[in-house]
Nucleic acid binder design. Structure first.
Lengths: 361, 361
DNA sequence: TTGAAAGCGCTAACAA
DNA sequence: TTGTTAGCGCTTTCAA
């Protein structure tokens, strides 16, 4: 009921009959060699007896380092974000670092307030997975205050000319991923393709658009039938909206394949097709991105692009730790490769797809 | 490049030409009334000019409270766990509390080490969503050290007789949820039902089993054809394994409906059916639990039970905060109700599938 | 209304 | 090998 006072190092020292400094040395693995084996044992016994646990707060204040890092993510409900976090955890476990995870929901103010809290809590560094291209100035400023690893999302490569602007990045090659997905569609024979683009303030989606464009540029016979609008959120509902737009064209001008910038939007596209009386993949192929859980159990199982999120988190953490140690003096930019996952939502267009027999619903 | 020293309160005080104590008072909303409006403004201006941010570490050491709470969860990859976390965040936002989230992966040692880290970091309280029934002693001990809210998973009601054992709980009525799901199957006319039980060291799954039993007890004509084994993990693979076991019976003795203790296991059951050449829901109905994302987009869309995870998190946080304030002197036990979500994976058994042609509904 | 001073619990020179 | 001492940055009595 009544919560007893938590024992301090002073209590341990008294109990062991030594000075606090000795107790501190005895319990600190780095310094315990400075202490006689006998007293070390005695102090340890006292600590165990009292249930002593180092007060990380006091330790942090004294040493100037907290043993925590911030992990700023857009959205925990996004499974690959969780995977990144686990990668970070893996990369920091040995060092006994505690990652503090904060969400931004892709709101610029929330990014700022989240970072502000982390700075207030004196994290030793930050893995930033939630940057918008419009945050570049903010991030550059932040990098002047604390070690930062820019993960998952970066900035436009131009404008990287700031002198002495060291930057640590662990990114994913979204251009290659999108290009692989769209090239797959083209190789299956699709000549009318539309993309359902994500929010263009996020590098991942900008680059997926670039990958789409690159794939089409290499195949001039293929038409881009995208509607031109892009999603503001990356939800099923938005995917459905964009797909409906793209599919609204008269039958002969309708895309036979859709590239959605993420899996949820691809699911929305499947919904839109169903509502129009079109079948996937018989009438229209669909590709997603991220390889979300259960995307292999959809109807039909979704062709998608896998992003090595766990590795991304792990590398980010490692890089951040070395930046904190001061080991990393140069800019580092790691780029992780995508993997195309073929399932049943893509197939060659039906015979005479150009003439298109599909119902207009 | 070189990271400049972070300004301290002393810097602000000097810059404003006042004593640090005055600066402290000026910047602390609770005490700023003790300071003349003029100096308050001056101090604030100095703080802004220097980019001062209170050092939460020093503040915590001095005040003995960190403004952080621990949130111990089994598994971030579980979407309803994320929803709980968001509820917690909602419940703590106003007070500007930082929730520290740690995972246990349902490993007893990880629970202990996670809690240990949180205690070391001197969190002000803990929301524990990851308890096993075998952790009761550990938890009782913990409750003697720090305010704890037992969320999502509780302990057996017997044995609650410890004198003065105050306990704060925010739980979900798994018995009612399971009972509703199974009663729904029975009312559709199913008379041969099997459950695919989760790990029996977790109260949620124990209670889902009890709800299953209660539903059957109220309908003596219904047979329990469960295989008797239960899952160790709550994955698609385990669901598939258990479903295959239950469906291995000769045709006339085969269950016509399966109640899986969570959605992933239900998905595994769908896989098992497909492998056996059985259709869902025509041959066998399936019910899940949790209403996971995309469970409405499966083939077929899954009937399931929704658990009010966001509210659960929100209530837990509120309760913890009041416990920290010392407001809550009595045990509190909040029980949140489930909601049955009907979709297409359940329907009455085919004619002759059971002896019972007359659905009772 | 402001300043002086003590101290939260710990670690790290320095001295012995 | 151990003890002494100072101080990390802040808040909060107590005095002025």
């Amino acid at each position: 009921m009544s919560i007893p006072r938590v024992p301090t190092l002073k209590d341990v020292a008294k109990h062991a009959g030594v000075h606090v400094a000795t107790a501190s040395r005895a319990l600190n693995t780095q310094q315990s060699h400075l202490v006689s084996e006998a007293t070390r044992t005695r102090v340890q016994a006292a600590a165990d007896a009292l249930g002593y646990r180092t007060n990380a707060v006091a330790q942090s204040l004294r040493t100037g380092t907290t043993g925590t890092i911030g992990v700023v993510v857009p959205d925990l409900a996004n499974p690959f974000v969780v995977s990144i976090i686990r990668g970070v955890e893996h990369g920091t476990r040995r060092e006994n670092i505690l990652p503090l995870v904060v969400e931004t929901h892709d709101e610029p103010e929330q990014l700022r307030s989240a970072v502000s809290r982390l700075l207030g809590n004196r994290v030793d560094g930050i893995v930033l997975c939630a940057a918008h291209t419009t945050d570049e100035e903010f991030v550059a400023d932040l990098e002047g205050k604390i070690p930062v690893v820019l993960a998952l999302r970066g900035f436009d490569q131009r404008g990287r000319s700031a002198p002495g602007a060291r930057r640590f990045e662990v990114l994913h090659d979204d251009i290659a991923g999108a290009r692989a997905a769209v090239t797959h569609l083209i190789e299956q024979g699709h000549t009318r393709i539309a993309q359902l683009p994500g929010n263009q303030v996020i590098s991942s989606f900008i680059e997926r658009g670039q990958g789409f464009a690159a794939a089409l540029a290499a195949h001039p016979e293929v038409e881009d039938l995208s509607s031109g609008t892009h999603a503001t959120e990356h939800t099923v509902a938005e995917g459905r909206r964009l797909a409906a737009e793209a599919l609204a064209a008269p039958a002969g001008r309708r895309p036979t394949a859709l590239f959605a910038h993420n899996d949820l939007m691809a699911v929305g596209a499947l919904d839109a097709l169903r509502e129009l009386g079109l079948r996937c993949p018989e009438d229209v192929s669909v590709v997603g991105y991220n390889d979300a859980p259960l995307s292999d159990h959809l109807d039909p199982p979704l062709t998608t692009v896998r992003l090595p999120s766990y590795e991304l988190g792990k590398h980010s953490a490692r890089l951040l730790l070395s930046a904190i140690e001061g080991d990393a003096s140069e800019s580092v930019r790691t780029m992780l490769a995508p993997e195309l996952v073929l399932r049943e939502s893509t197939r060659p267009p039906a015979d005479g797809a150009s003439a298109d027999e599909a119902p207009t619903a």
